[in-house]
Design a protein around this nucleic acid. Structure first.
Length: 464
RNA sequence: GGCGGAGUGGCCGAGUGGUUUAGGCAAGGGCCUGCAAAGCCCUGUACACGGGUUCGAUUCCCGUCUCCGCCUCCA
């Protein structure tokens, strides 16, 4: 059994065989730091986070490059409109993305290269393309000659002749299909020197240059949102392969988050920002919501669906906590359920993987009910291992640190509640249920949920 | 116009040519409990519409309807 991934280029699942044994090299198109991240942006990051965690779990040394596009038309425009320097505008939003990724438990990439830091690599690539007859300089711009690459359109399954050319007319193009590698400098805009004159990077060039700089001429996986298939990834592939690089062997594309049936996008104004959602649910809960459906399915966002995810996740979380309190702290199991592994091997089938997690949760609950503490702990350890692969382990320090629990106030609360629970236990023992219920009611009114079980009583704060 | 995706039980969301179910949420019944909560067990008989292939299709093929996406910046 091995990992199979759906490759956009072939439109079918293919066994994953890395270029270099034991190493998985992944390039993901990250943010264009023109604005704040919405939950669709972060879904993309999450999908590739699950992929890298799974590859790591399988023993591969993962090299993950997630770029930051920090120079483009919109960044310049928005910065200008806001009266801020373009580089400050980009840096500000880069931090916003970083904050969002962190809040949802995305492991840091191996490196997050910025376009502006890799102009020499871009110049080198353009030189190779010009030398090979695949690109030309004209009027300060540099263009890629699409017709010089016969396989153009193979990734997105478009025929060049069928493409509608809505692209903005640029002066020196020899063919309407040609796309811009390098934009000649305009007054007031940032520019970098090149043999063809000063200017700034076109959108597609940076990814080809950075991917091969960090991962080599040929690497394993290139990922991004579905909307990047054309023209962005098609163009990347065209320029890199024309330059003689093998480039990506598997192309993965995640679907989006829709709102009211439409793709979430800034132009439609129907975005839902990550901070806004995190005012209502915790990071780990939003992560569950975004990771639970298959990555190639669209998620139609609704408040109700988000709430359901919260309930589903809390079922897992409360089980792990219950086991810890009643049967002993579960470690992370060394072995995960075969069903779970098979699910992820099948093109990252997170829905089926979560079904396996829930089966283990039920198993642990049953063991707890039966008073079989070792079995409960063992099942909870499997739950931790599996949720850990998905970045959802309830006892992972990342999520635990967000809980209250260590500070002085929490300690005081704990002492007071424990004291009341002792009083209640004594009342129950004396079969003075009126007093016992009164104590419980007082705690409930204060937001403390009390639950009785054969091993005693436990309490939790409402809504945590 | 070209290319592609989707329509599943009250809801979210998987999946498969047929006798046994995704999973979760919500609902009803039961067990447990002093009561409750949690948990466990059980129940629901779904697959847009019309044809076709087949012994048999929700699952394959054709058509229809509806919705969405890419072809311009976009996760």
């Amino acid at each position: 059994m091995s990992l199979r991934l759906f490759d956009t280029a072939t439109r079918e699942q293919r066994d994953f065989v890395p270029v270099r044994a034991g190493v998985a090299s992944i390039y993901v198109c990250g943010a264009t730091v023109q604005g704040h991240p919405h939950i669709g942006h972060v879904r993309s990051g999450l999908n590739y986070d699950v992929l890298r965690r799974w590859l790591s779990y399988r023993g591969l040394d993962v090299r993950l490059v997630r770029n930051v596009t920090d120079i483009d038309d919109k960044i310049l425009l928005k910065a200008y409109e806001s009266g801020r320097p373009w580089w400050e505008w980009g840096a500000t939003h880069e931090r916003a993305f970083q904050w969002a990724y962190d809040a949802l438990g995305c492991l840091p990439a191996s490196i997050e290269p910025r376009a502006t830091g890799h102009v020499p690599q871009m110049v080198e690539l353009m030189q190779r393309l010009i030398d090979g007859g695949h690109a030309y300089a004209a009027g300060g711009d540099v263009y890629f000659a699409v017709r010089s690459y016969p396989e153009y359109g193979e990734l997105s399954h478009q025929r060049p002749d069928e493409l509608n050319q809505g692209e903005t007319e640029a002066g020196g193009k020899r063919d309407p299909l040609d796309f811009t590698l390098w934009k000649g400098g305009k007054p007031g805009e940032p520019s970098w020197p090149t043999p063809w004159g000063p200017g700034r990077p076109g959108w597609h060039l940076e990814c080809s240059a950075m991917a091969t700089f960090y991962l080599g001429a040929e690497f394993d996986i290139h990922g991004g949102g579905l909307d990047l298939v054309f023209p962005h990834h098609e163009n990347e592939r065209a320029q890199s392969r024309s330059a003689g690089d093998g480039f990506a062997r598997y192309w993965l594309h995640n679907n989006w988050v829709t709102l009211g049936g439409d793709k979430m996008s800034k132009s439609l104004g129907n975005t839902l920002s990550v901070p806004a959602v995190l005012k209502r649910v915790r990071g780990v809960e939003l992560r569950y919501y975004l990771v639970a459906p298959h990555y190639r399915s669209a998620i139609e966002y609704t408040d109700a669906a988000l709430e359901e995810s919260v309930a589903a996740y809390r079922r897992i979380e409360s089980l792990v906590h219950r086991v810890r309190e009643r049967a002993g702290a579960p470690e992370v199991a060394k072995v995960i359920d075969a069903r779970f592994a098979e699910a992820l091997d099948d093109d990252l089938g997170t829905p089926a993987a979560l079904a396996a997690v829930h089966a283990a949760v039920r198993e642990a609950n049953s063991a707890l009910d039966a008073g079989d503490h070792p079995a409960a702990v063992a099942a909870a350890e499997r739950v931790r291992a599996m949720t850990g692969v998905l970045g959802l382990d309830p006892l992972d320090p990342q999520w635990v640190s967000a809980d209250s629990g260590q500070d002085a106030a929490a300690g005081a609360l704990s002492a007071l509640v424990d004291d009341l629970l002792e009083q209640r236990a004594a009342a129950r023992k004396a079969r003075d249920f009126a007093t016992a219920d009164e104590v419980r009611d007082r705690l409930t009114a204060a937001g403390v949920i009390v639950e009785d079980n054969p091993d005693g009583s436990t309490w939790t704060l409402k809504g945590v």
